[in-house]
Design a protein around this nucleic acid. Sequence first.
DNA 1: CAATATTCCCACCAACTTACTAGGTTTAGA
DNA 2: TCTAAACCTAGTAAGTTGGTGGGAATATTG
Lengths: 148, 148
Amino acid sequence: MLISTKGRYGLRSMADLVLYAQNKPVPLRAIAERQGISESYLEQVFALLRKAGLVNAIRGSYGGYILARPAHQITVGEVLQALEGPLTLANCAHGGTTIECDKTDTCLTMSFWQELSAKMDEVLSSTTLQDLVDRERATGKSPEPKDK
Amino acid sequence: MLISTKGRYGLRSMADLVLYAQNKPVPLRAIAERQGISESYLEQVFALLRKAGLVNAIRGSYGGYILARPAHQITVGEVLQALEGPLTLANCAHGGTTIECDKTDTCLTMSFWQELSAKMDEVLSSTTLQDLVDRERATGKSPEPKDK
DNA sequence: CAATATTCCCACCAACTTACTAGGTTTAGA
DNA sequence: TCTAAACCTAGTAAGTTGGTGGGAATATTG
């Protein structure tokens, strides 16, 4: 039931991007090194993030990636969904929504899947990339804040 | 991110077992038919449930499976864990517990995984098989209650 | 213009997992 | 002894995971 490396690497990389972007694009190379991830694998991860509209790419020398929106407007749920596909546990429940299936009438577990999905969605859609970074800074281990 | 069929079939089957057991063992055949699952596949599911100590098997004619404990003492989390393995999203968080990894200091996502895991665990460990059946009965679609 | 640093794109791969099916053995009740 | 059940093991086709590698396009700098 592990989230795949795509989701885990991707989320860490997005947080890294928030932390180290100084209004300049951040090259994958730097992220890959800091996070200990293969650069060419990260490429594939960022291709998905770009297609989902979460980052913009700047090509060529001194290029890299930047967030498409401010960090406090990108939720962890969006990032994971872009990388993992729908965050659906069973076919009858997605986020807070009910999905009909042919056994809706007699299914004993539907309401459970819905409840669990809704609880997860609460966290996924209320936590933003900014939150991740803020929490980390609160522990006092990060590099200098941007506005130094 | 779907829970696998093992987990979904297994949970449905356990609820089915609660609903249809009349102090007699329930054969897989019956569960398989009611739930529309292949019997031989269910065998493998129940092998796991038995090894986890959640059901007891009674062999031979008129045999079948019975819950090892009362339905209100078996949580959905136990069932899913028996079938899916550890319900861990990332290597740094399991239920409410923190797991150390070599990047604990700098990991930007650890606290998020912990929060999400903890929220999921709340639901998983507080919902019992009895709850599933009670909810279903509340909708008035189930067969006669046991104590009729 | 040339060198360089980067994204971008695609093909490939080995290992593993999933969702089964099939065939047989053992056990116990009628 | 017949039969219905659990039990066990092996196989398998398709898909997923977690990558690697090669090269093309693009932008910056000297």
